[in-house]
Write a protein that binds this DNA or RNA. Structure first.
Ligand SMILES: [Zn+2]
Ligand SMILES: [Zn+2]
Ligand SMILES: [Zn+2]
Ligand SMILES: [Zn+2]
Lengths: 164, 164
DNA sequence: GCCGCCGATGTAATATTATAACATATCGTT
DNA sequence: AACGATATGTTATAATATTACATCGGCGGC
């Protein structure tokens, strides 16, 4: 089940609003603090579906004069990662908002190398397969990453058009 | 199908010998040059089933006096990655030898966070699932990563024994 | 044999990503 | 107000990776 297809037209304002309201509700329910800084980082990540590096976030955090310092953003990211509100994209050393943070889940992330956007799908089937493989060798899973890099349909259509 | 279970006792000399001879044959067949430096890096990676960072490899490459410079090892790694002779472990920013480099494949990598060793399994089933998901959204796959971090059976047995 | 080409390696500098250590501020409670 | 706990600010540094350019070495053409 695809949760968002950033390369298809969609009302991104809805993405942002839903992400922030879910995050707010979730933190309230868990009794953890979604402080102004943490919320700001989450909003910056949700500006688009292109994952951002920690330093790209930092640049936006600066109040104009001087940019913020690295620990500021890494600490916010640590919190958001712990709460499942963002995922780290290992292929890019970048971070993206999670559209379904309520429950821990295996996120399979599709990454377009041309437009840069990232889409997360709920990989329940994959998770089952991985779980079976782990059980077979008596391995206790703590964290899993599935990332697929390539070209999204939109970019491939464009390239085909250009070439013709 | 599990290709190696580094946490079970095994004759590691066989791993090394087979890896090197496969690499040699493969490069000969492809008419690419497995130079002394590249072979050396591959041997260093096969010293154990614990993935090594680029700088850990560098430290071993130095001829005692001064260590080698980063581009030396990154270029060798680029070659080995291109030829499928090694995989990058994104969770660790580290590199490991591939036990089955003949054909491109989706490697699912199990990583023990306690002993550090890594096992690659041929994830044909996973690959099929990912391929189906990609087809559904018309996404062209170029590269995929599957990593599972946790605790291997051996380490869990040890911990259980210690606790008792 | 010599020249010139090309791929591989050496070297220096720098960019990017991430963490450690310690000081200060803010929140919620008593 | 006083306090402890959590969050943030600040400085420095570690770890990972790349760029740019110089040099070396084999190999084919002459
Ligand atoms: Zn959107
Ligand atoms: Zn795209
Ligand atoms: Zn072995
Ligand atoms: Zn282990």
């Amino acid at each position: 089940m695809i949760h968002n297809q950033p390369w298809r037209d969609h009302n991104h304002g809805d993405c942002v609003q839903e992400a922030i309201s879910r995050a707010t509700a979730l933190c309230a329910a868990r009794n953890v603090r979604l402080t102004a800084l943490r919320r700001r980082v989450l909003e910056i990540l949700w500006q688009s579906h292109v994952p951002l590096s920690a330093y790209a976030i930092l640049a936006q955090l600066g109040d104009g004069a001087r940019p913020a310092a690295p620990p500021t953003v890494y600490r916010a990211l640590d919190f958001l990662l712990e709460q499942g509100l963002v995922h780290k994209v290992e292929h890019l050393n970048a971070y993206m908002g999670c559209p379904m943070p309520e429950h821990p889940h295996l996120a399979a992330i599709f990454l377009c190398e041309h437009c840069g956007c990232a889409a997360e799908i709920d990989a329940a089937g994959l998770a089952a397969e991985i779980g079976a493989a782990a059980a077979e060798q008596d391995f206790a899973i703590r964290r899993q990453t599935v990332e697929i890099s390539g070209a999204c349909s939109r970019c491939r259509e464009q390239r085909a058009g250009t070439r013709a």
